[in-house]
């Protein structure tokens, strides 16, 4: 794992916009963060189709809605905090209610924003986006999946929320990887515990599986980058087999992947579900490794919760 190439998913997002911009009539909107969101790559390639909206996210989402209503495929980008947070209501009323073909490319999701601290570390976006009817919500695990998610979003007719990260993460997939909304990806087979993760936590979940393996515990790691729709079939098949579930997300444990998994398992076939994530707290400034450690977003924490979940099996 240590030798694996690392790329931030926001980089892959910027590259994907350029790649697919050649083929599709996409228009990219940004709110004065093109350097950070990496839409600057698209601006260099297709300046006439890159629209900087200035620091005005509510209007940006509304403009995206109007572009989509007139047949364009807009990608609106800013930090997750200002997309899902500040512009929540514009996304809800101007985009999702009329089911317009707007793609929201939200970068700097989660605590790995690092030094900028709590105001810029969005830990609620997947939760609030998931509550909007008809919204597709995706948090890719690596650069390959990020690219694939952009393509899937373009091919899909309707609103999509894509969360990308600032921090470089290991590349997990090869060029032959295929992605679909609502389809989980089984990363490892195991029969003792299911670990469901998305985003940056997928590679950390794989590390946890290695730790557990050393203790003779077989963990089945599932990448649920597509949080909505959720691959209920894969989840329930795995939870029925292992009888214990741990979720791992770079998000508040309230509302996000942990909640989605607990809702599904609780409703159809209850087994213990333990949630690794930010424990209903705000973030703070720090280096990414220090923050991941401080907030319990580690392989050790996942492994410990896995053992606890196994101990609670009926």
């Amino acid at each position: 794992m240590m030798d694996t190439k690392k790329i931030a998913t926001r980089e892959a997002y910027g590259d994907a916009l350029v790649e697919f911009g050649a083929k599709y009539d996409i228009v990219v909107l940004d709110a004065d963060l093109a350097e950070a969101t990496k839409t600057i790559k698209f601006r260099k390639a297709y300046p006439e189709r890159h629209i900087d909206c200035g620091i005005a996210e509510g209007n940006m989402i509304g403009v995206a809605a109007g572009l989509a209503a007139a047949g364009k495929i807009p990608f609106a980008s800013t930090f997750a905090m200002f997309a899902a947070g500040r512009a929540f209501e514009q996304i809800r009323n101007s985009v999702a209610y009329p089911h317009l073909n707007v793609k929201i490319g939200a970068t700097h999701g989660g605590i790995t924003v690092g030094e900028d601290g709590a105001t810029h570390q969005c830990l609620e976006d997947l939760g609030v986006m998931r509550t909007i009817p008809g919204m597709v919500v995706v948090n890719p695990a690596d650069a390959v999946e990020a690219r694939a998610a952009v393509e899937a979003a373009i091919r899909y007719q309707g609103p999509v929320y894509l969360r990308f990260g600032r921090y470089p993460v290991p590349v997990l997939y090869g060029a032959d990887y295929t992605f679909a909304f609502g389809r989980g990806v089984k990363m490892t087979d195991g029969s003792d515990v299911t670990i469901v993760a998305n985003g940056i936590m997928v590679s950390i979940a794989l590390e946890a599986a290695d730790l557990l393996k050393a203790d003779g515990i077989g963990a089945e790691v599932l990448n649920f980058s597509s949080i909505k729709p959720l691959d209920e079939q894969m989840l329930l098949a795995s939870s029925a087999k292992t009888g214990a579930v741990v979720t791992a997300e770079e998000h508040n444990i309230i509302g996000g992947l942990g909640s989605a998994v607990a809702e599904c398992v609780g409703e159809y076939a209850p087994v213990p579900v333990l949630r690794v994530g930010v424990q209903d707290r705000f973030g703070k400034s720090g280096t990414v490794p220090a923050l991941m450690e401080a907030y319990g977003l580690t392989a050790g924490e996942i492994a410990a919760k896995a053992k606890l979940a196994i101990a609670r099996k009926g």
């Binding site: 509510g58 209007n59 509304g62 403009v63 809605a65 109007g66 572009l67 807009p74 101007s94």
Partner: peptide, 8 residues
């Protein structure tokens, strides 16, 4: 804002 998007 949506009207701006359509005009754009």
């Amino acid at each position: 804002s949506a009207a701006c998007g359509m005009a754009l």
